[in-house]
Design a protein around this nucleic acid. Sequence first.
DNA 1: GCCGTCACG
DNA 2: ACGTACGTGACGGCT
Length: 892
Amino acid sequence: MRKKIVLIDGHSILNRAFYGIPDLTNSEGIHTNAMYGFLNIMFKFLDEEKPDYLTVAFDLPVPTFRHVMYKEYKGTRKAAAPEFKQQVPLMQDLLRSMNINVVTCEGFEADDIIGTIAKTSARDGLDVVIVSGDRDLLQLCEEHIKIRIPKTKKGGTEVEDYLPENVFETYGVTPLEFIDVKALMGDTSDNIPGAPGIGEKTATKLIAQYKSMENVFEHLDELKPKQKENIGNNIELLRQSKILVTIKTDVDLGFKLESAGLDDMFNADSYELFKRYNFKNMLSKFDKNMPQKELEVYDNFKEVTEFSEVEDIFNKVKEMVESGKQIGLAVLAEESLSGIALSLSDEEIYYIPCTGFVNENYLVTRLREAIKLADGRLIVTSGLKSVLKFLDTTSLYEYSDVPENAFLDVSVGEYLLAPNNESYDYVALARTYMDINVPARAELIAKDSLEKASQTNNENLVKYACLQSYIYLKVANNILDNLKKMDMYDLFINMEMPLIFVLYEMEKQGVRVDKQELIDYSAVLAEKIEALEASIYKAAGEEFNINSPKQLGVILFEKLGMPVKKKTKSGYSTASDVLEELAVDYPIVNDILEFRQLAKLKSTYADGLTEYIGEDSRIHSNFNQTITATGRISSTNPNLQNIPIRMEMGKLFRKVFIPREGFSFIDADYSQIELRILAHMSGDEKLIESYNSDVDIHRATASHVFNTPLEEVTDLQRRNAKAVNFGIIYGISSFGLSKDLSISPKEAKQYIDQYFESYPSIKDFIDGLVENAKENGYSITMFNRRRPIPELKASNFMQKKFGERIAMNAPIQGTAADIIKIAMIRVYDELKKANLKSHLVLQVHDELLVEVANDEIEKVREIIEKGMKEAAKLKVSLEIDLNVGKNWLECH
DNA sequence: GCCGTCACG
DNA sequence: ACGTACGTGACGGCT
């Protein structure tokens, strides 16, 4: 068997990866997309070729012999993007860390290195595979030298493979003749001139016929007069071109095959770098090489079913908790409880399945006994909100006897430390804090439910459970230390941890929805939609799927010939702002707009919400605490934070949200909380004064900006001022404002300039926000919540601007999120303390909806008012609008 | 699984 | 020149 060597054209593959993979940045702001793409391509080829040897060749950033002989060589090539450049040396270091042979050679290019190694290796009896993004290398092709050119197509990479016969099929010339083709036609990207007027077609034809450039020179008389002139007048230049495009195969490299062996690619050094660059899905490659750390622990995972043993474990847990020691807890529950895992130490990690005498009641009882003994945050877990569900489902106990401060939720803690992350599960925590890559749920128990997994693959289920409890316990103090270091311990302990209990209660309570009303409304919508459909089909002259932007685009812009105002990546934009413009001239478009609106209402709200109404006539949506980068909470399954309010047709959905019998709703929302926060944080006297004198804030802004007495501010001026106020909060840009107000960016800029002239301290404030964020790499709220902004380090103009807008917005939006979280906790605590039946049901960013017992309305009104208004002490007052009603529409 | 669209703050 | 306002989630269509 011939041995095989793979040769990679480092620069060209890295470059291809850079443009093929969207920008990626690690937490330090280092761009990693090219490296990531390179590794993907490299692993793919290693996998396919299974070579014995591997070498990656790179250019050096110094002139080569080509530059010396022809000073215009690569002259017009524009400088590479800095995001690319910075990755070149990093890539080389990364490869070296993987013990991969990286070769460079002063005075020569990567092509020459590859050419030399390829030819010598082939001569020495190896199979050679060259991987490059560049067709220039095709000239190296021969029986045992294959060229592979990866192409990034959407849906994966395709590879073009070239052996000599493929080169001939594709180009009609042999690999060696390819050099002459190239010399004749030139190469604009390398600034090689070639003969004027001779392109790829002609050059190929001539070489196919005459076999070499020199032979073409011999037969100039047989050419067309123009070609004869173009080539004949440039013979010297063309000879030089040929030297330039000929890849050297005799460079003195001192290449040793032994040093190109593949050995120990996945070692501790490379692991560090993979982790640093956040190549998460590649870390599993290290598994079989670095298992030591994990295996030890896996051996200590133990399933315990013997009743007396379970008793012993719980007794030990109680002892530990009593003496102030932390334990790790993971609860495995879906429809029902499968079991719990307890981690007491590195040696004692137990999975206790829920079976036999060890039933749910038993487990809950014993666990609660331990929790009640905890003085301090000793019960370490993740997803505490769902753990509470398990602790609460028993009929044996009152849930409220469990002390809140017994728990520590490591995922919520990690969210504060890195709110941009997408996951805070045990896999992510193990990577971040323990440098290990542990199997994810999907790897252990596939798509099975937990119940099914316990029957089919119990061993993996035990591993899944124990791993979690083990990791939670392991990382807890690291996370606490980091929170303290970053001054977020208070935020964690006094805001995020207590909030878990509030959100749990809200989810548990849910909100009542009138199912029949929803179903009826769906039917009404269906009827209207059908009528609109008929009218649209008639106007279009055919039936089509109006919900398909693609089909709709064809009808509107091709068949009906409407002017194209805006395009998307994949075709014509049919977004509502575009359609609204068209509606003036084409009445059919109004029907389409209405159809869209009603279709949305029907699918998302009428039919969508109906699905979620439970046996208790209530919707129990999920409030997620670890999603947003700014600190807001989000709502899913269903999303109850985007129930319509602005449009008449949509509003009606608020009517189906109703309180239970004997209860009412109180809805309270902050009045312009973000602008008030801006007033406070900036300390701007004018804005503070406006709020303290209780004038309409947008009117006051208009008065200042347009230099008009308050009473004379026109509606238009007020509207403009309002838009500017929003703009300030979003991170102002003249372009965004101009779009919002349908004015020119120039006019928008004037408004902004005028605003900043009127409010200089606000300008200073937001400039300061950006400046601080640039200096620190993150923004910060009044309550110390951080948001890292890696975008600020981008050299891409757009991205940096985006980072700047985030830096302006995040502290304001985040502080508002902090404040309403405080309010929620206070309202929750007060309701509980007063032993009231009323409870929070929804939070919509600046609004709280409370289901209130009819005999508690006045008390609860006071609690809400106090809780919200006094949630933070600002330089301006926090005002709320509060209403009582019999449905959500009525009280908002 | 991504895109375009649109619902909310 | 670049080509956008900040933060979310769900749906239908399409690949």
